[in-house]
Amino acid sequence: MTARTPVLSVRGLSVRFLMPGGRRIAAVTDAHFDVAAGECLALIGESGCGKSVLASALLGLLPANAQAAGQARLGDLDLLAADERTLARTVRGRLIGLIPQSPAAHLTPVRTVRSQLEETVSALTGVRGRAAVRSAAEAAAERAAFPAGHLDRHPHELSGGLAQRAATALALVGDAPLLLADEPTTGLDRDLVDHTVDELRRHADTGHRGLLVITHDLAAAERIADRVAVMYAGRIVELVEAKAFFDAPGPRHPYSRGLLQALPHRAFTPIPGMPPELGNLPDGCAFAPRCERATHACTALPQQADGIACHHPHVPEDLRA
């Protein structure tokens, strides 16, 4: 539906963990999505739904007891088939810029922001020579709106917002076509969330970068995303334009609807029950036990069609043909 060429194209991505005693945990099941250049896709869902496992799979950072299947194409490269050497030398930093959850922990505490930026410039780009590296580092800081006057400070001397910008500057150095932000707003104030999110958005707006944001913060997702993918029990249950999701006509999957209704400025009522165990998923729709619309049909797995995987999606009047 989007004319732009996808930067990242994920097809049938599944990740499972083999646990002692032969238990299998299906953390991600059959995920399909694209991220186009200039676009921001927000992957939302509750903690433990598999969204950070998906991010780890893209970066090749799965632990040794994990297995993955499917494809995640970034240009000509299948991230899931790439070996550790390729991932380390060409993917992390160069093809995918990672914006971490807690920037303060991501930065080296004993070195200044400038020296970390310069090191990253030398490692990731062909820039050589002291003066050239220095100016490249300053340019990277400027792109992330990190003030030049603070470059010689250590991470602990920075406020939360500036630390976030420093981490973003590091992620931008390699000029990666895909930026991956894993819970970039956890523990930040609303103002700082808005600020961080707006800055991330700017990097997608330059038009040649795709942005994949993984978050449980619906307000942040609403502010930043072009499209929203809702994950439940390891599956993407709804993938839709952000405007249609947060405004009219609203989400169509009952889970997404429940998630939005739980927000304090909406009904503030929780979805009854708890998500199923990823190690013991039902054969049919995983949300059915908590769903008020569930019928006998829901004992079969809903196929994904038109961006939604549900037997009984909400069909607002204005969408009806």
Partner: peptide, 16 residues
């Protein structure tokens, strides 16, 4: 900050 790390539904459930 009981609900700062949690998704909307869990947060609402804990507050309830």
């Amino acid at each position: 900050e009981m609900t700062a790390m949690l998704d909307a539904s869990t947060a609402a459930a804990l507050v309830a």
